[in-house]
Structures are given as C-alpha cells and as structure tokens.
Design a protein around this nucleic acid. Structure first.
Lengths: 191, 191
DNA sequence: GGGGTTTTAGACTGTGGGACGAAAACCGTG
DNA sequence: CACGGTTTTCGTCCCACAGTCTAAAACCCC
C-alpha cells in the first residue's frame, strides 16, 4: 500500500518465492526467504500443480501477506491494477489474492493488517478505498466497524494538515488477531 | 448427507486420498482415485507440510467435495459430529472443511451441490439444518433464497407423506454454478 | 474576522431478515 | 362426512443496520 494504491512485491517478472528443499512447513520457508519481518497477516491461498509449468513440473503454493500502509519495505513494488506482464499464471494469482483480500475486508477485521497502529477515520478510509477499489463513506465505515467492536477510539486528536480542518479523532483496531465479525447476515441461528 | 446428518467418507482411520506420482493437476488425481463420478462441488482447502507427518515427510492438500443428499454412494460414511479417532490431523481437516461449507452456505449458492435436482422447502430446510448445525426457519429460508435469485419455483406439487399435510410446492436451484449471492452486507459500493 | 477545508454528529430512510399467527390442504379415524 | 392432527403456505409486524444527507464543529490561511 503506497500512494493510495494496493501494491504487490515482485521479483522481476514473477512473484517472489522460495523452493522447498528440506522438510519444513510451507509458511516458514517462505518467510525465511523473503525476510519481510513479522507480517500482521499471512494466509495460504491456492496450490497449483500445472504439468506445463516451466521448467519441468512443480507444485506451487501461493500465499497472501499484508504489510501496513505506513511501513516502507525495500524491493520492487508494483500497483496491483497496473501490473507488468508476469510469468506463468502469476497475474492470475495476484488477482485471486486481491479478491480474497476484498472479501475478507468485508466480513473480518483484516483491516488491522493494512492500517498503522493508530489512525484517523479518513486515513482508514483511504486504505479501504485503495484495497476495495470503490468509494467508501467515512461515516458508515466508522459506524460499522465500531458497532462490530472492530475499531475503538483512543484519546487524543491529530492536528490537521496544511489545508486546515477540524482535528481528527484517533482510532485503533481492538484486536490484532484475525476474527470474523460479520456473521453472514442470512441464515443466522434463531435467538 | 444421510438421515439428516452431515457425513464424511472415510478409508479406515483416515480420509481417502491419492498419491501424486506423475505430473497432473491435483484435482484430477484425486477424482480418479476416488471414483465418485462428477461432484457438483469440488474445492481445494489447505495444503499442509508437516515434517512429522508419517511416514517420512510429505505434502498433503485437502479437498472438499459435496454429494447431493439423494445420492447413495458406496463406502464407509461417518457422521461428521461423531467421528471415530482419525490418523494425523485428519479430524482437524474435517472440521475445517465443515466450517468452510457452513460459511459458503450463507453467502453463496453451494446449496445446489447438497440438494436433489428438485425439492420442497421442507426438504431443503432439513439439509440446511444438518449442514449448519442449527435450526432454520423454512419461511425465511425460502424468502431469502428466492429473493437472491438462488431458488426458483417449478410447476407441480409433491403429494404429502403418510401423516398428511398440505402438498408442498417444488423448487430448484436456478444455477448449478457456484456464485456469490450475498455481497457482504457491509462496505458495499455506494449506488 | 471571513472564506475554505476537513472532520464530526445527528436524523431520516429503505431494505432485509427474524418472529409470529392464521389459513390452506391433506391424512386418518369414527 | 365431520373432526382433530399435520404439514405447508401466506401475510404481517417489527427491528436492526446500512446508505444518504445536512448541519455543526474546529481548524487553516489570508
């Protein structure tokens, strides 16, 4: 996330990755190879076994890792909606990952993995807009997330920017652990 | 699904599976080994690489396949909520699969993969109750699914059973392709 | 102090879904 | 054939929640 756009880390014309040689969990192998430090959210996506994958044949397991918007990380980051041509089906994987992220933003609290430790509603709104790809009302965003117990207000206010404006209240995510917050409106158990 | 309970196919004390030897997509290898015919829904779950998995070390990719309630299939089926002790982490996998199914029942039309071609609302209700693990109102189930365009009424009625009762209207799923029907209430794009 | 800007708060509205009750249509029995 | 028991169907009420709008609050710069 940078400049109001969702970005993805690339290694040339492909997604960065690691080869699994010794017995170890998939996630740790990837984390060791990428050296991104602790990621707030790290989630397995699909495993593909395309026989025509070059060279020879191999299995590939994709992962989705999220980095907070205020963290600067080295490497080549490309905007997700303006990807250069990628090798194999890597562009597909990026789109699938974005779809997964968008869905989870709506019914979980993954936002904590994209947002700084504390933030104003406007800042959070910009992050959600960039990730979701469509506009979001700041009023509704705050009300929805606070009512669900995802967001909580903390003391203090942020001084306005150059252009002026009322000082903004500060918020933070109540939990840093992934949790489902929307019990899928329909088909709920009766009370 | 049998006798109003969700069931899982077992092969002794483990989930049925196949070993991948030649280059081929994971799904086809599994389908060939299991010989269940065409499944209405077939979905990849998690891939695990536990070094302490016996014997030696191996990767394992779990899949979720759904069989309509009216189809009788050979093999040893066990109720999901009364599983015998299973090898490795297979019990975990079954529970994860059930969780996935329950979530998808709420925001997609996967129901088509569990239901017969045509059915009454009461029959569909029994299926949903078994899969979700909690009661569901027949009235609301019908209204919700019809309004979302998932269900449609078809001509004819089903004669009542031994106990009598009003003849039930027949329904079917509009589509047999997986589709997301609930756009995650919150954080929807403004109109 | 006035105009522009950003944030905050409140009220209104519409929709979707849970709960409830009554009517419809069937079976058995006497 | 009238009656009670059963299952399905239909309609209504009601509440929670999200989208919209408007106005007020609090700041900047000039």
């Amino acid at each position: 996330m940078r400049e109001r756009r969702l970005e993805v880390l690339l290694d040339g014309d492909r997604l960065p990755g690691a080869e699994l040689e010794r017995p170890e969990p998939l996630g740790t192998a990837l984390a060791r190879a990428l050296d991104l430090g602790r990621l707030a959210h790290f989630e397995q996506l699909e495993t593909r076994s395309d026989p025509d994958r070059a060279p020879g044949w191999q299995l590939a397991t994709a992962y989705l890792g999220l980095v907070p918007a205020d963290r600067e990380l080295p490497g080549a980051w490309a905007p997700v909606d303006e990807l250069p041509p990628l090798a194999d089906d890597h562009a597909d994987i990026v789109l699938a990952a974005r779809a997964r992220l968008r869905a989870k933003l709506s019914y979980t609290n993954v936002g904590f993995a994209l947002a700084p430790a504390t933030f104003t509603i406007s800042e959070l709104r910009r992050i959600y807009v960039a990730a979701l790809g469509h506009d979001v009302s700041a009023t509704n965003l705050q009300r929805v997330l606070v009512r669900r117990g995802v967001l909580e207000r903390i003391p203090g206010r942020r001084a306005p920017g150059r252009a002026g404006g009322r000082p903004a209240a500060l918020f933070r995510f109540v939990s840093q652990e992934l949790a489902i917050t929307d019990e899928f409106a329909a088909l709920r158990p009766p009370r």
